[in-house]
Design a protein around this nucleic acid. Structure first.
Lengths: 147, 147
DNA sequence: TTGCAATTGTTGCATTTGCGACTATTATTG
DNA sequence: CAATAATAGTCGCAAATGCAACAATTGCAA
């Protein structure tokens, strides 16, 4: 039993993050099931609840979802009647994405549910710890840009 | 532009974790490429460097990898000549997994590389912050057990 | 303006993934 | 001991994924 390797393994920041991240996703998936959304789709819906009329490119960039995946997620949401693609006023190759009325109805529950999952996982930490966590993680994120 | 939704989205603990986790994996994948390992396989190799002679079940449990995936990862590592399956002394349905000599050679670089990736991502934080982070995340993990 | 490069979005196709069924073996129960 | 349940590991197959090529359009430069 190699103690040195064990220490590296047990203290691995990346491993820790991955484990927690997967558990959050699993729990989120459970709670989203009722609304017909999934971990794949909810992120784009959340962004649309925040701001509509973005292009697919923009949606993909802001949610860090690759283009081909954005296309498919929107296909799926469109089929569910939650969003619609509208033509861009000046560019014929871009689409502007809007929530349908049915999509807008998610505003009543979805954001609160996301908040809820996060809070539940952070239950072990007090307010100060949470602030520190958020701060440190945000700092780490911005110091390690996407490629 | 819905400010309330925006706040929830931007402060989302789960989203933050996922983004960082994916970036770490991406960087790790790059560095692992040279050694013929991948994010899929390195975790089990790391565990074997720490302790050999575990069953596939045990390997899967400790790395949180499902059984069918463990089988496939070991198939792959076996084909690369890095591990070997040996019969369990008392149970004919279990295998005990050992590193080959070639597998053992990874001890010289792999743990250090993992350490390196973690350190690089934590570069933005000083020692105190790192301690706090590790502590808080470990607490969160244990308070939210796997299913 | 014409030709070339870049952008937006979509899709075909091969690879990867995960569920569930399956084999073989071992443990348990009556 | 026989019958049944539980366990370790594997595998087929459908679905999900990612790459790379593609069509359509727009921007840019000579």
């Amino acid at each position: 039993m190699d103690k040195k390797v064990r220490k590296i393994r047990e203290n691995s920041f990346g491993l820790l993050l991955k484990k927690i991240s997967l558990r959050i996703e699993k729990e989120l998936e459970r709670r989203l099931a009722k609304s017909g959304l999934s971990v794949k789709t909810f992120g784009i819906v959340m962004l649309l609840l925040e701001e509509e009329g973005l292009t697919q490119k923009e949606l993909g960039t802001r949610t860090e979802v690759p283009g081909y995946s954005t296309t498919r997620v929107l296909d799926s949401l469109e089929k569910q009647g939650l969003i619609q693609r509208r033509p861009h006023p000046t560019s014929r190759r871009a689409n502007l994405i809007y929530l349908t009325e049915k999509g807008q109805e998610l505003r009543g529950q979805l954001p609160m549910m996301i908040q809820g999952v996060n809070d539940d996982f952070l239950a072990a930490c007090n307010q100060d710890e949470r602030k520190m966590l958020q701060g440190a993680l945000a700092k780490i994120l911005e110091q390690n840009p996407l490629d």
